[in-house]
């Protein structure tokens, strides 16, 4: 199979994912990142004007800097059925960041074969088991379509200002990925991070997020993380085994 094609949006923290062999004729969108930096004081989408640079073989690198706050680089490499995102974030402020993150959005609303505004084909994992997201507790908030979840091994979402401010975090603790199965149940899209700090999904746009966390970063320190975005064929359990191996070998 040929590789996926990536088309960055110059000057924006955004990337179109096109010519996906497993989803012919459909387009996806990555908001990478929609927010980044200090979990208590993020730089939001549009807050910096990044530069996209082509690296060859269809890969691109995004770099951006906000004076006195942060700089970051994201490399996006397309494969046959996955886009690998490698992120590095540097704290250029004079504050110690208790937690840091990249709020990466994987938008599926434009892909009819997977878009799922009712969450009935959304999947997650907890305790080693696959679960439908609609079976997991959620919390109603003024933004009723939005939900956030804590991740196994990461700080509780309620302790993260970025997450708590949404007032939509239940006590559920999940593995660091979310997936949406296609309507024909033969394919799926998914996002998984290492390390993952929290999960987010928004029914309004049918988007899923696995937010990479960079941990605590002192002034001048740099953290690294990975985010894999899948467009695969086959059953969920086989994909999950592969994803775990991919992240372990990452």
């Amino acid at each position: 199979m040929p590789n996926i094609r990536l088309q960055p949006v110059q000057g924006q923290m955004a990337l179109h994912v096109l010519d996906v062999p497993t989803f012919p004729g459909e387009g996806f969108h990555l908001g990478i990142p929609e927010a980044i930096g200090d979990a208590a004081r993020c730089v939001w989408f549009g807050g910096v004007e990044p530069v996209w640079e082509e690296l060859g073989d269809g890969a691109w690198r995004q770099t951006a800097r906000r004076e006195g706050e942060l700089s970051y680089a994201i490399t996006a490499t397309p494969r046959e059925d996955v886009v690998e995102l490698r992120l590095s974030l540097t704290n250029e402020s004079d504050r110690a960041w208790a937690q840091s993150l990249a709020f990466n959005c994987f938008g599926c609303g434009g892909a009819g074969s997977v878009s799922d505004h009712e969450c009935v084909r959304h999947w997650c994992g907890s305790g080693g088991e696959l679960r439908r997201l609609i079976e997991v507790p959620r919390r109603f908030s003024p933004r009723a379509t939005v939900q956030l979840y804590s991740v196994e091994g990461a700080p509780p979402g309620a302790d993260l200002p970025f997450v708590a401010n949404f007032a939509a975090t239940p006590d559920a603790v999940l593995e660091g990925w979310l997936a949406i199965q296609s309507r024909d149940e033969t394919r799926l899209v998914a996002t998984a991070s290492r390390p993952a700090l929290f999960l987010f999904q928004n029914m309004e746009y049918s988007c899923i997020h696995s937010a990479p966390g960079f941990g605590p970063l002192g002034p001048g320190e740099t953290g690294e993380a990975a985010n894999l975005v899948y467009f695969t064929e086959g059953p969920l359990d086989a994909w999950r085994r592969r994803m775990i191996a991919d992240l372990r070998g990452d």
Binding site: H117, E118, V120, F140, A144, M203, E204, Y205
Partner: peptide, 26 residues
């Protein structure tokens, strides 16, 4: 018109909202 789950067609259902500036095709 996209709704497939009957529980989301109940008149009491409240799981939809939107950003004021979002203009979706539904």
């Amino acid at each position: 018109w996209m709704t497939s789950e009957r529980l989301n067609l109940r008149a009491a259902a409240r799981n939809m909202n939107g950003f004021d500036n979002n203009a979706a095709n539904f």
